[in-house]
Design a protein around this nucleic acid. Structure first.
Lengths: 89, 89
DNA sequence: TCAAATATAGGCATATTTGCCTACCTATAA
DNA sequence: TTATAGGTAGGCAAATATGCCTATATTTGA
């Protein structure tokens, strides 16, 4: 059994990046008018996975990222353009 | 024990995308003058992983993609710009 | 042709993600 | 207050990626 604190600090590599990425995904998803449930349903994956990705607690795969970009009808590169977009959450 | 044929067809989702992605990574890596061993060493991961990623037989994580882009000194979005670049291998 | 460098292949144990599930939280509207 | 929608949390088993290792194939250069 793993405590969440330990989980965040030791278990995940690059968690800062993952959190930024997740926040950007969340903003993008909302701007496209999707709920987590709708996005998950379109992808055929679990809502809890979307939640975990957006919170940056898992390091999802490149093909999932690709599928998300297709479902949201955004360019996959948009999901990585978050360097300048801080603090609009 | 898993035969390679089965492995490719049933095990991997989105293998077409992963192969394109891998080919694009390979071209990008070479254009930056890196061998697989050099890239793997810079990242602190296994050469065999780089090989597997470039051949599209595994679905690596978003943070590994991010780290690769940093090691190669390219924008992460470049690793996904391969729609138009067919047949230069 | 030969040797060295580079890349591919895969076994095996371990790490991590994912699917499935249930529960809880938070806001909003009736 | 109650109900509903949207999101968060986490346990557990199964699926998949990764590290570590050795071996083999392919390419490159002398």
């Amino acid at each position: 059994m793993i405590l969440h604190e330990f989980y965040c600090v030791e278990y995940i590599k690059n968690s800062e990046f993952l959190i930024q990425f997740g926040n950007n995904l969340k903003r993008t998803r909302k701007s496209k008018g999707f709920t987590q449930a709708e996005l998950a349903n379109d992808l055929g994956i679990e809502i809890s996975q979307i939640s975990r990705i957006e919170r940056g607690i898992i390091n999802t795969s490149v093909s999932t990222i690709y599928e998300i970009s297709q479902a949201l009808k955004v360019d996959i590169t948009d999901l990585f353009n978050f360097d300048k977009k801080i603090g609009d959450f």
